[in-house]
Simulated scan of single mutants.
Amino acid sequence: MSSEKKNLLLMVPMLHQGGFERVCIKTARLMQEFYNVHILIFSSKDINFDITGLDVIDIDVPAQKGIVNKVINVLKRVKKTKKVKKDLGIDISYSFGSSANYVNVLSKGKEKVLTGLRCQTDMDNKKNVRLFCNRSDQVLSCSKEIVRELEREYSYNRSTYIYNPLDVSDVQDKGAEEIKDYPFNEPDVKVISCMGRNDYIKGIWHLVKAFYLVEKAHPEARLIVLGAGDWSDYRDMAWSLGIKEKVAFPGVRKNPFPYVAKSDVYVCSSNHEGFPNAVLEAMALKKPLISADCKTGPREILLNEDQYNALIKEIPNGDSITKPIEGEFGILVPDMSEEVNMDPEDISDEERVLADQIIALLDSDEKMKHYSEKAYERALFYTPEKYQASAHEIFKRYE
Rank of each mutant, 00 (worst) to 15 (best):
I41H: 08
I51W: 04
I51D: 03
K26M: 11
I47T: 04
V56M: 08
K45T: 12
S43H: 06
L40F: 14
I59Y: 09
R22M: 12
A28R: 11
K45V: 14
D58S: 03
S44L: 01
I39Y: 04
L54H: 05
V61Q: 07
G66V: 11
D46C: 09
V61H: 08
K65H: 12
I39G: 01
F42D: 08
M31K: 04
K45F: 13
Q64G: 06
G18N: 02
L30V: 02
G19K: 05
K65I: 08
G66T: 06
S43F: 07
L54I: 05
H38P: 01
D50M: 02
I39H: 04
A63S: 05
K65T: 08
Y35D: 02
N48L: 11
A28N: 03
S43C: 04
T27N: 14
K65P: 05
N36I: 15
G18C: 00
D46A: 10
R29G: 01
L54C: 04
I59H: 08
N48I: 10
E33C: 01
D55I: 14
D58A: 01
S43D: 13
T27C: 14
G19T: 02
V23P: 03
I47Y: 00
G18W: 08
Q64N: 12
C24F: 09
I59D: 03
V56D: 03
V61G: 01
D50L: 07
I51S: 00
H38A: 11
V23H: 05
G53T: 04
L54F: 07
G53H: 08
D58G: 00
V37Y: 10
F42N: 06
K65V: 07
P62M: 04
H38L: 15
Y35W: 05
K45Q: 14
T27S: 12
I51P: 00
D50R: 10
F34I: 09
E21D: 04
D58H: 12
G66E: 09
D60Y: 11
K26I: 15
V61P: 11
M31I: 04
K26C: 05
L30W: 01
N36F: 09
D55T: 11
K45I: 14
M31D: 02
V61E: 13
N36T: 12
G19S: 01
V61Y: 11
T52C: 03
F34C: 00
N48M: 15
V23K: 10
S44M: 07
M31N: 02
S44F: 06
C24N: 06
N36G: 06
L40A: 09
G18A: 01
I47A: 03
V23R: 08
V37E: 09
D60P: 13
I47R: 00
D46L: 12
V37K: 06
D50I: 02
M31P: 02
G66A: 06
K65E: 10
H38Q: 14
